[in-house]
């Protein structure tokens, strides 16, 4: 990070109670054993997170164990489950629709996550403009996130209309004939990625909150140093936005792997054309509630959970290298 910022940061840290606290912390790390103080801290920490622990047991562990057990059975939700061992998992690895839907989901997530991050940052910068009427911009940019997905799909099909839709108008410039973007498996997925961007306001307000966290003094100092807007963005805004980026990245991956609503609404739950928008979650859902194969659906869910957990682990531990929580020191 730019030197000028360190200067500001260093100034901020020279403070007598803080220095004392540093000393306390240093003393604490000397002993690796759980001291009385450590125990007290642990107790306090657990006390604060206790609502979450209760929630974990009720809303996560219980359904998860339930799914794990059910995934070893054939179960319709009504009659008694029949134990089938790992049969559902074996089926999952040979089911062509699992392969197709997993491929669709990875395709979607691979596009939607990075595009979503960029769009959200752009919206956040717009929402953070120094103008009197910024409240209106913020509201306008956020409104699509408030609109139910089915209503969004009504306008989106106007955008992608083969004759007067903007996308096709653009393609026509290159001499293409009219085509139904929702009628072809690959372009249909891209349309869904684009439609998801209308709801980028959600990620954007997290970035906005992140932008509000950055002290203006940093920019002032950088300007004194002669840094231009690009330099400021790269060396101040981006690094200090990394906590928000990590959040939007992980929740983006989670949302991408579980993409469901847009496809459900745009294709009336069918996942067409030619299974082009049959996403993993949609297939899982249909198995659970349309075909009443709850055992199989649970096995699919367990597999998704494992993949998600691994991805989260990967991102979380890589993130320790790039995420910067120290606003003042940089």
């Amino acid at each position: 990070m730019a030197n000028s910022i360190d200067v500001v940061g260093a100034g901020a840290r020279r403070h007598s109670p803080a220095a004392t606290a540093d000393a306390v912390r240093a003393a604490r790390t000397v002993s690796r054993r759980l001291t009385v103080r450590d125990k007290k801290n642990l107790g306090l920490g657990l006390l604060f997170i206790s609502p979450w622990i209760v929630g974990l047991v009720i809303f996560v562990l219980y359904p998860l164990v339930y799914s794990l057990v059910i995934s070893l059975t054939r179960y319709s939700g009504m009659a008694k489950p029949t134990f089938v061992g790992l049969q559902n998992y074996v089926t999952a690895f040979t089911d062509p629709l699992v392969k197709i839907s997993a491929g669709n989901t990875l395709f979607y997530a691979g596009l939607a996550v990075p595009i979503g991050l960029v769009v959200a940052v752009v919206l956040a910068l717009a929402m953070n403009r120094n103008v009197r009427e910024v409240a209106w911009y913020r509201t306008a940019l956020y409104i699509p996130s408030l609109v139910p997905a089915f209503a969004l799909s009504f306008i989106f099909v106007v955008f992608v209309n083969p004759r007067f839709g903007v996308f096709n108008q653009f393609l026509t410039l290159f001499g293409a004939g009219n085509s139904n973007l929702l009628g072809e498996p690959t372009s249909a997925k891209i349309v869904i990625v684009l439609m998801a961007q209308l709801a980028a306001g959600n990620a954007a307000i997290i970035f906005l909150a992140g932008l509000r966290n950055i002290p203006v003094t940093l920019y002032e100092a950088a300007r004194v140093d002669g840094a231009g807007p690009v330099r400021q963005f790269v060396s101040i805004t981006l690094p200090l936005l990394t906590p928000a980026i990590l959040f939007n990245l992980i929740t983006g991956i989670s949302g991408g792997l579980q993409v469901f609503t847009q496809a459900y609404v745009l294709t009336n739950g069918v996942g067409g054309p030619d299974n082009g928008t049959l996403f993993y979650m949609l297939y899982l859902y249909k198995n659970a509630f349309s075909y009443a194969s709850l055992g199989y659906a649970s096995a699919l869910a367990v597999l998704l959970f494992v993949v998600g957990m691994l991805l989260a682990w990967l991102v979380y531990f890589i993130s320790k290298k790039f995420v910067n929580y120290d606003v003042a020191a940089g």
């Binding site: 089915f150 799909s153 009504f154 099909v157 106007v158 992608v160 209309n161 083969p162 004759r163 007067f164 004939g177 009219n178 085509s179 139904n180 929702l182 009628g183 072809e184 609404v265 745009l266 294709t267 009336n268």
Partner: peptide, 16 residues
């Protein structure tokens, strides 16, 4: 098919 599908999507878009 592609042209018929484009026709249909033009005059009778999904969720119309």
């Amino acid at each position: 098919f592609g042209k018929v599908d484009a026709f249909k999507a033009t005059y009778e878009p999904p969720n119309h």
